[in-house]
Write a protein that binds this DNA or RNA. Structure first.
Length: 575
DNA sequence: GCCGTTTTCGGCCCGACTGTTTTCAGTCG
């Protein structure tokens, strides 16, 4: 079951959309959008707050607070239901089509009675849109195309996919003679766990040749928009990429602007307005006479607004602006803080690289310690046996003297439907460290899943719960136990939760990390590498960890080896 | 509907591009 904050935020967002569609006051619609963001980003459970507590959340006043109380108390929101009665559900879905907003959706419904995407397709193909004000032949074609794109891609891609595209484009544009600077911004720079589109920023006195080169790159499938300051394309694989070219002196303001998020930028601009300033992608200006104040670096822009530079991974309007203003931004964990990897595989089970190859790659990467954690015997397809595991341990001990990277022998246990694991205490005691993960029976009830994970945490030999939600981005939904109960068990037992860095997992995600951290949980950022090339995916896990506001103290694999060993020993001793 | 280091009323972030318009509305980020 979704947490109350998400339920409330979804209702407020729907209410805002319906106000827009029905032609209501646009400022009222924006108020509810803002309230939805406020609720979604609020750390406390809204179900525990009274009217007064709710009104403390930015963007929520008396009227919205009353609607929230009504929704949580009765499961209904009368004002929302009233609008729902006026607008068929399908009309709101029309807004998901690129190029179709509330105004056009309303026109289609009012003039033609269209109430679903399917009906819209039929209407366009029958030529019923011609003559409708604002709907020319080109608009009709664009809508059909938008529906095609929507149905085909579903929108977002993995961060690893987007990064590869971005790096290719940045390299190509950087090589152009007139290009002074070029990099990516947007959600990719913020390290989101999936990417809707890629934003590229370039600095040049002469934008036109750069725009032209961009539109003609081999990976371009179609050009969506082409102007002097901005060009948008879709790649052959369906990923949208926007290029903005700005003057060199605007670089900082432009980076700030195009990194976003939209919500963060609104928050920052509000501060600017209050100081009699105006912030755009071209710089920070005095409102009264448009005189430029600063624009060259992000540090200057934030600085002039009375803020320290805010790391991109925090820029989601989740309290970072207030924290910055009060000088309590966290010292975020970075890749340089990571001393070792605690969840990796070899070809003894489903990895593709040998033990020796994995160790060599890890040494090259500079790890101080490294845990080999192949699958345990209850994963039948892995054909693991006690003897094979013990043989690997002997080999690892022999290799231990060869370098300054300490070697830990571990395993990735399988958490069975009842919360048990592959081996008894006697055998488990021989491992230096154990990860335990769910690999099957994802459809248990939330109560069963909760018990299962809590029981795994209570096992004195389980040090890390691997990929806790088991989600595969775009392919498998996360399991939904009572997370707060699981987090409390992890914190109480000294069990770390994994931030699995594999790009199709990124599990836990940022929001669960924040919730877990507030309950005192420790984390391990692991690659879950199945080959030597996977060791570098840690960077994606670092991004997600930063988005969860994690500091080195929160992450056990930034600790020194003695400290890590005592964390493990303490749990065993407590049993 | 919300909000206040100019404000309890009158504002509400800002600019680019497209399509359809003859000066601008709608959409997007």
């Amino acid at each position: 079951m979704a947490r109350p904050n998400e339920v409330v935020a979804a209702a407020l967002q729907e209410y805002a959309d319906l106000i827009s569609i029905t032609g209501g006051d646009p400022f009222r619609a924006r108020t509810y959008e803002k309230a939805a963001r406020g609720v979604a980003g609020h750390s406390a459970d809204v179900a525990t707050l009274d009217l007064k507590g709710l009104a403390q959340i930015p963007g929520i006043g008396k009227s919205t607070a009353e609607k929230i109380v009504e929704l949580l108390g009765t499961g209904r929101m009368a004002a929302l239901e009233e609008l729902r009665a006026k607008v068929p559900a399908g009309v709101r879905e029309l807004m998901a089509i690129p190029g179709l907003g509330p105004a056009k959706a309303m026109t289609l419904h009012r003039e033609l009675g269209i109430a679903s995407v399917d009906e819209l397709v039929v209407a366009i193909e029958a030529g019923r849109l011609s003559g409708l004000r604002g709907f020319g032949a080109k608009t009709a074609a664009n809508i059909l195309h938008g529906i095609e794109v929507l149905r085909h891609s579903g929108g977002r891609v993995l961060i690893s996919t987007a990064l590869a595209v971005a790096e290719e484009i940045v390299a190509a544009l950087s090589a152009l003679p007139g290009c002074e600077r070029c990099t990516y911004a947007g959600s990719l720079r913020r390290g989101r766990d999936s990417i809707g589109d890629v934003d590229i920023l370039a600095a040049s006195r002469e934008p036109e040749p750069i725009m032209a080169a961009f539109a003609e790159l081999p990976l371009v499938g179609e050009v969506i928009a082409r102007g002097p300051a901005k060009t948008s394309i879709r790649t052959n694989d369906g990923l949208q990429v926007d290029l903005r070219v700005v003057p060199h002196e605007s670089w900082g303001a432009a980076m700030q602007y195009f990194t976003g998020s939209k919500e963060h930028n609104i928050r920052v601009r509000e501060i600017a307005v209050r100081k009699g300033l105006k912030l755009s992608e071209y710089g920070l200006f005095r409102a009264e006479d448009d005189e430029l104040v600063v624009s060259a670096t992000e540090e200057e822009v934030y600085g002039r607004l009375g803020l320290p530079w805010i790391p991109p991974t925090l820029r989601e309007d989740r309290g970072e602006v207030a924290a910055a203003r009060e000088g309590r931004l966290p010292r975020l964990v970075t890749e340089a803080d990571i001393r070792g990897d605690l969840h990796t595989h070899t070809d003894l089970t489903d990895g593709v690289s040998t033990l020796e190859e994995m160790l060599a790659a890890a040494r090259k990467r500079g790890h101080r310690y490294y845990a080999v954690t192949d699958h345990a015997k209850n994963m039948p397809m892995q054909r693991m046996t006690d003897a094979k595991m013990l043989a690997q341990r002997r080999r690892l001990r022999e290799l231990a003297d060869q370098g300054r990277m300490a070697l830990l022998h571990g395993t990735e246990l399988n958490i069975d439907p009842d919360g048990g694991v592959d081996w008894d205490a006697g055998f488990l005691a021989g491992f230096d460290i154990c990860v335990a993960s769910i690999h099957s029976h994802f459809t248990q009830t939330p109560a069963e899943l909760t018990n299962r994970l809590v029981k795994a945490c209570e096992n004195p030999y389980v040090n890390i719960i691997g990929h806790p939600t088991t989600r595969l981005i775009g392919r498998r939904a996360p399991i939904e136990p009572d997370w707060d109960a699981v987090f409390d068990a992890a914190a109480a037992t000294g069990t770390a939760l994994e931030v699995n860095a594999f790009p199709d997992r990124l599990d836990l995600n940022d929001e669960l990390i924040m919730r877990a951290r507030e309950r005192g949980v420790k984390f391990a950022i692991d690659s879950d590498a199945h080959s030597t090339v996977h060791l570098d995916v840690l960077r994606f896990g670092i991004g997600v960890a930063q988005r969860g506001w994690l500091t080195p103290a929160d992450v056990i694999n930034t600790w020194t080896l003695p400290k890590l060993r005592s964390f493990i020993a303490a749990k065993r001793r407590a049993a």
